[in-house]
Design a protein around this nucleic acid. Structure first.
Lengths: 225, 225
DNA sequence: CATCACATTATTGTATGCAAAATTCCACCT
DNA sequence: AGGTGGAATTTTGCATACAATAATGTGATG
């Protein structure tokens, strides 16, 4: 596990490692997280392990009960649905606030970022689009000029990351996503708060649909073998 | 300080104690939280203290830097402004969702809760109104049928609690608050999502105004006093 | 008088040890 | 066979001990 901690403590580093492992699915939902095991696995003592676990528990990534150990939080489909709805609402709120309070420079930067994505769509480069997409949404978070809301949005996005990883693989999704972004960008550009809210909500709800379809297709493949 | 821990751990208990102390202002913003001192003060060792601090740090209540100790988060007026805006947006979102997805029973319960508050307004009982107000808003959170959003709303409300404690003391605030609630209740009752959002946003922004006025009055008293 | 270097102190981060609670396992009984 | 009781084991919670880093103080020097 390579070098030591430059500025981070072991507990912080471990919290990051574990979060990654959970978000990438390496640690499956419901998996038991016993302190001794993790301590041995990561070459530290139980103390930093406990601190990392407590941190992850407060973020909701793991589920820790007083004397019964911790497990990776199991996200039910109902909770996933709630997460997507919440994400949509928060994103829409960000778009609303951004439409109201972005500076001209920020609006231009968003527009040019959006324009650059057109070329990626033409190339059909899903991976590059995914990266640019994160930047696009982050720009809107920042444009809301509200650190609290932006933090909530980022946190939700992180929690949903494992479930939307493959979203752009769905047929025609790239082009559709770009068109929706276009509506959002235009609404923000002209400072139309209501439209910005509506179009963003629509955009994110379609993301959920895309993920649903992929999940459905995946489960059908599993059944048919 | 009383009895021992029935089901919760010392760290959890301590996190609650410290959170209370911070929210009541007993621990002022910027106050240093040294582990040894807290351990002695609360009669535990440093281990649970550290775990409690880490938990509070992830909730944003305290500010902990790697090797430089923890302090109570200092909320600047800019951040407070952001918190109020965020709270307004989330509350409005809850109202929107509630308008869309509350069951008839829930709508009726909200209406009757609201009606009961009329009598409290007549009596001018600020304390009773404050309690009922919490129930009123919580009912809307639940009515959103989205645990994630409800949790975010509750968390923001907790963080703002110290700053809105005296809001109903402002002149005529009780009656005004009731009138605004009325608009929200009516919008939700008829399932008007847009109106529910708008009226709630208005309501919460007026709360902020009320708090601002009280803060202003208080600072003036301090200067003259 | 200010400033820098260095030693001292205080405080945080981590490891380890022990006690209590929970889980597991096994013999025993109905 | 199934269930129950209680040891044995595992695992968590907490305290203490030690190491490493930051904070502080002191004296010398320009």
């Amino acid at each position: 596990m390579q070098s030591d901690s430059p500025a981070q403590t072991r507990a912080e580093w471990l919290a990051g490692e574990l979060a990654d492992a959970i978000l990438t699915g390496e640690l499956a939902p419901g998996a038991r997280l016993d302190e001794t095991g993790l301590a041995a696995r990561y070459g530290v003592s139980r103390t930093p392990v406990r601190e990392a676990l407590r941190q992850l528990a407060t973020t909701g990534l793991i589920d820790a009960k007083p004397r019964r150990g911790a497990t990776v939080t199991h996200v039910t489909s109902a909770q996933l649905e709630e997460l997507f709805v919440a994400m949509g609402e928060i994103e829409a709120t960000c778009a609303r606030l951004a439409a109201m309070s972005m500076t001209p420079i920020e609006r231009r930067r968003l527009a040019s970022l959006h324009q650059a994505m057109a070329e990626i769509v033409e190339r059909g480069d899903e991976s590059a689009y995914a990266d640019a997409n994160v930047r696009f949404h982050s720009t809107i978070y920042k444009g809301a000029h509200n650190g609290i809301v932006a933090e909530i949005a980022s946190s939700l996005r992180r929690r949903l990351a494992p479930f939307r990883r493959a979203q752009f693989r769905a047929e025609g999704r790239l082009r559709l996503s770009y068109a929706e972004h276009d509506a959002v960008v235009q609404a923000i550009a002209r400072g139309d708060a209501v439209q910005a809210h509506t179009t963003m909500l629509h955009h994110v709800s379609l993301v959920e649909d895309a993920v649903d379809q992929l999940a459905l297709a995946a489960s059908e493949r599993r059944i048919r073998g």
